[in-house]
Amino acid sequence: MVSNMVKWLGALVVTRVQEMGRMLLFVLSAFAWLARPPFRFSHMLKQLHFIGYKSTFVVVLTAGFTGMVLALQGYYSLRKFGAEGMLGAAVALTMIRELGPVLAALMVTARAGSAMTAEVGIMRITEQIDALDTMAINPIQYLIAPKLVAGLIGVPLLVAIFDVVGIYGGYVAGVDLLGGDAGSYWNSIESAVEWKDIYGGILKSISFGLIITWICSYKGYHTRQSAEGLGTATTEAVVLSSVVILMWDYFLTSVLL
C-alpha cells in the first residue's frame, strides 16, 4: 500500500521533471534557431500584430477599470489618514510595479495565448508540422521562434499601454468623480515613482512575454492526436501559464524589492 503510493509519487515526479526538461529544450532550441538564417521578419511582425495589436482593446478596457477601482479603494483608505493627496502615487506605483504587468499578461494569456495553443495544436493534429519536417524546414524555427520574439516585444508594449491607461483611469475616478485634487494627483506620481519601479515593471513584462509564448506554443506543439487533445492542450496552456506568471511575479518582486 505504502510502497504503491511511493511508486506512484515517484513516477509522478519523474514525468514532471521529464516534461520540464523537454520544455527547457524546446525554448533553448527556439532561441538557437533564432540565431540562424533564414530570418523571417515578416513572420515576426505578423505574430506581433496578433499578440500585440489585437490585444490592445481588451488591455485598454481592463486597464481603465482597474485604474478606476484602484482609485476608489485607495481614496477610501487614504482618507482615513488624511492622505488623499497621495492617491496618484498609490495608483501609479501599484500599476507600474504590479498590476500592469500581471493583469496585462493574464489578459494576453487568455486572448492570444489560448489562440496560439489552438493554432499550433491544429497544425500538429492535421500534420502540417510533419509536412514542414518533410520539407526539411525546422518547425521550431519556422513556427515557434517568431512567436517568442513577438511575445518578448509585444507584452512590454501592452504593459506600457496598460500602465498609462490605468493611471488615467485612476485620475477619472479619483479626481473627476470623487473630486480629489488634480494637481496633487500628478505631483504625487512625479515625486513617488522612481526609475527602478519602471525597470522592475519592464523586467516583469518581458519575462511574462516569454512565459506566455513559451508555455502556450509548447502545449500546442505537443497536442495529442484528437479533438479532445486540442481542448486539453488549450486549457492546460492557459492554466499553467497563468499560474507560472503569478508564481514568477512573487519571486521577481521579492528579489527586486
Partner: peptide, 19 residues
C-alpha cells in the same frame, strides 16, 4: 536527416495544407 529529406516529397493522407 534534413539532407536526406531534401530528396523527398510527401502527400499526406489528410493533405496537410497550411491553413
Amino acid at each position: 536527416l534534413n539532407d536526406v529529406r531534401r530528396r523527398f516529397a510527401m502527400l499526406f493522407q489528410g493533405a496537410a495544407l497550411f491553413d
